[in-house]
Design a protein around this nucleic acid. Structure first.
Lengths: 136, 136
DNA sequence: TAAGCAAATCAGAACTATTCGCATCTGTGG
DNA sequence: CCACAGATGCGAATAGTTCTGATTTGCTTA
């Protein structure tokens, strides 16, 4: 019974091979930001008998269970990352495609205030900064 | 020579029927936020001989010319709105789908600062607040 | 530790949003 | 008013994602 197995159990999901492998891939990937296709390729490279439909289904379940977060940058494919419970937003370099995480309490507060001013409660937000290196 | 015609000319685009009609629809729509499909339906309802491919092509050209802005909320279809030159972000009500515009100079400044702190220049951003009514 | 059953998976089809290719048509400058 | 570049319409193509239906797998209980 590995750590991954326990996480899955806790989330009320059956411990199956595809789910364990996908969780491991997400935990071990270097930049923490992968598309469904990236994960599918990683599976294919190692063993290779998990369908792309399963990758999507599992990711959706992981998201519902709070194990991963899904983000949509601009109009490209969605990217997934392990949810460590530390909320953050993203900065994407338009030259290199590099993704940088950041957190700013002040911005978070302002968002709450803006919603409140209009008579609403904030239930979520999506903030992506598109940036380029200083010397470009 | 209508106002729409002049805008098109100024943007270096031939003044064709589809372009004029699409511009009018965008200028006259009540909530200012339409999908390509919405526009296609509006055209269909009135006259009806503009293909969906043309709608997309024209919207893309309008965007390049700075006449309209395109936004992607979550994972749904893109929405388009006339660009009045007044930058703003969006708040989307998760109950009603209503789109509210807002602008906050402080948030804009913070974004610049965050990019600078990481050694980058801000070239753009996407901020969407997902909200629900206070009484829900 | 095998049987049974619900849940999960696979492959491929379907779907949504968007773009492309190409034959035809239409503004615009001369 | 003519010619030709540029625009359009249609249908096919694409990318990303979800659904379907038949088969398999993992938990439960005996």
């Amino acid at each position: 019974m590995t750590l991954e197995d326990q996480e899955l159990k806790k989330a009320g999901l059956k411990v199956t091979l595809p789910r364990v492998k996908i969780l491991q891939i997400l935990e071990n990937c270097s930049d923490r930001h992968m598309t469904a296709e990236d994960i599918y390729q990683a599976l294919r490279d190692s063993d290779g008998d998990v369908g792309i439909a399963t990758v999507y289904r599992v990711l959706t379940q992981f998201e519902a269970a709070g194990l991963v977060e899904r983000h949509n940058f601009d109009n490209g494919p969605a990217i997934y990352e392990i949810d460590r419970g530390e909320h953050h937003d993203h900065m994407v370099c338009t030259e290199t495609g590099k993704v940088i995480e950041f957190h700013d309490a002040e911005i978070e507060n302002l968002q709450e205030r803006i919603a409140a001013e209009k008579g609403y409660q904030l239930v979520g937000h999506s903030l992506v900064l598109y940036v380029k290196p200083n010397n470009a």
